[in-house]
Structure formats: structure tokens, C-alpha cells
């Protein structure tokens, strides 16, 4: 997404001044003035978010931009409505998910990063070796009741650990939001303060991604449909 000024209506060339519908000819305008997904919904770059409020803003934009409402409009307006809707939908999808929200924020703050590579938490290394052993054993022969129980216990433990990581992520998020709220007063220090917070978030996301991989491997070994475990997108 690029920040480009949009002063004139593409259709009648009159001043639009940041409106999404031209005050003169009422044509829909491309949403290219939005600088990022937070901006789409008029929200500050904070991680704490009222989901109901977000949904209301999303519905408001949908009622303005959805292609259904432009069926009788010109092809140009239809194309703009399609792009604006697609953007609003992606922005909503990203922000409503707490994990995707953090990943997106890190990308915004540090320039485009595509995915954070999974990394095992250091304190779990020994346990992970055992899990790998159990997985190998499960692959080599049919699953007996004992191995099965071992894998399920391990999975439950790791899921618990993942929840703990997500809790930590929320804590760091609150620190971040406090920083954003106070940033006007002390903008000089802001850069020094936010970098360690972003690094901590990245560390947690890497650990979480690792845990998710192992949990999915365990589910596969237990012979469960992997589709059922691809459902962690919404929280």
C-alpha cells in the first residue's frame, strides 16, 4: 500500500479532500489514501482492540464499498468498489486476529518481513528431543495405547505452553499500547523503547510458531485430520 495524496476526483476533477465519495459527482474514490490497515478503520497503531467496535467499522465500510451496491455503476466505479472492498476485507481479517495483528504491526514498524521463522524455546530443548523420539517411534510401528497416551499428554502440555506464550504476547502488547499512548510526550525516547518490545514480540511469535508445528506433527502422528487443527486462525 502506498501513501499517495488524493486531492482530485478521478471523474470530475473537483476537490475531494479525503472523502471517499466525491462531494461534486458522488463517485466512489479509490481508498489509496489509507496508509495501513489501522488507518483503514481510523484506529491508532495499538494492539488492544475492541472487536465489536472493529466489526461495526468494518460493516460501515462494507455498506459503502461492497460491489453489490455498484451493480448499476460504471465499470470504473465497479473496479474501485472491488479494490476498496478487497482492501477493507483484508484489513479486517488481519486486525481481528490477535496473532495476525501483531505480525502485521511488526511488519509495519520494521518494514516488510514475511513470516517469522519458528524457533524452539530454549527451556524446551530437552523435552523436544523426547517428543521427536516419540514421533519417530510412532512412525516406525503401529500406535499402541501407551505411545498414544504419551503423544496426547505431550500435545496437551505443548498446547498449554502455547497459551502461556499467547498470554505473554498480550502483556507485551499492553506495554506497547502504553508506549503509543505516552509517545506524544516523549517521542525522542520512543524508538529506543519500542525496539526491545518488538524484539520480545518476535521472540514469542517464533516460539509460538514452533509449538504449533510440533502440535500439528503430534496430531498427524495420532492420525487426526490435520484440517481440524488448522483452525487456530480465529481466537
Amino acid at each position: 500500500m502506498t501513501r499517495s495524496s488524493r486531492d482530485l476526483c478521478w471523474n470530475c476533477q473537483s476537490e475531494v479532500g479525503g472523502e471517499y465519495f466525491c462531494p461534486q459527482c458522488v463517485k466512489v474514490q479509490p481508498a489509496s489514501v489509507w496508509s495501513d490497515y489501522f488507518d483503514v478503520f481510523g484506529l491508532p497503531r495499538k494492539l488492544g482492540l475492541d472487536l465489536e467496535d472493529l466489526q461495526r467499522r468494518f460493516y460501515d465500510w462494507s455498506r459503502k464499498f461492497h460491489p453489490d451496491l455498484f451493480q448499476r455503476a460504471t465499470p470504473e466505479e465497479q473496479a474501485i468498489s472491488l479494490e476498496n472492498s478487497a482492501l477493507v476485507n483484508t484489513a479486517y481479517r488481519t486486525l481481528r486476529d490477535p496473532i495476525a495483528r501483531v505480525e502485521y504491526l511488526i511488519g509495519l514498524e520494521e518494514g516488510a518481513v514475511k513470516g517469522i521463522p519458528p524457533k524452539a524455546p530454549l527451556d524446551l530443548l530437552e523435552e523436544m528431543l523426547e517428543v521427536q523420539e516419540a514421533l519417530e517411534a510412532a512412525k516406525a510401528s503401529a500406535l499402541d495405547a501407551e505411545t498414544r497416551k504419551r503423544l496426547m499428554d505431550e500435545r496437551a502440555r505443548l498446547a498449554e505452553r502455547r497459551r502461556a506464550e499467547e498470554e505473554r504476547l498480550l502483556d507485551v502488547g499492553r506495554e506497547w499500547d502504553a508506549l503509543v499512548d505516552g509517545s506524544r510526550a516523549a517521542s525522542r525516547d520512543r524508538d529506543d523503547l519500542r525496539r526491545p518490545l518488538l524484539d520480545r514480540m518476535k521472540g514469542i511469535l517464533a516460539a509460538r510458531a514452533y509449538l504449533t508445528t510440533v502440535i500439528n506433527d503430534l496430531s498427524d502422528a495420532l492420525g487426526e485430520d490435520s484440517q481440524t487443527h488448522a483452525s487456530h486462525r480465529r481466537h
Binding site: 460491489p67 472491488l82 479494490e83 472492498s85 478487497a86 482492501l87 476485507n89 483484508t90 479486517y92 481479517r93 486462525r233
Partner: peptide, 10 residues
């Protein structure tokens, strides 16, 4: 584009 993404989407 993951499944269950609201359309239109790009």
C-alpha cells in the same frame, strides 16, 4: 488466500 476469507479479496 486462506479458506473462509471474506470476498472480494486479493
Amino acid at each position: 488466500i486462506p479458506r473462509n476469507t471474506t470476498i472480494p479479496t486479493s
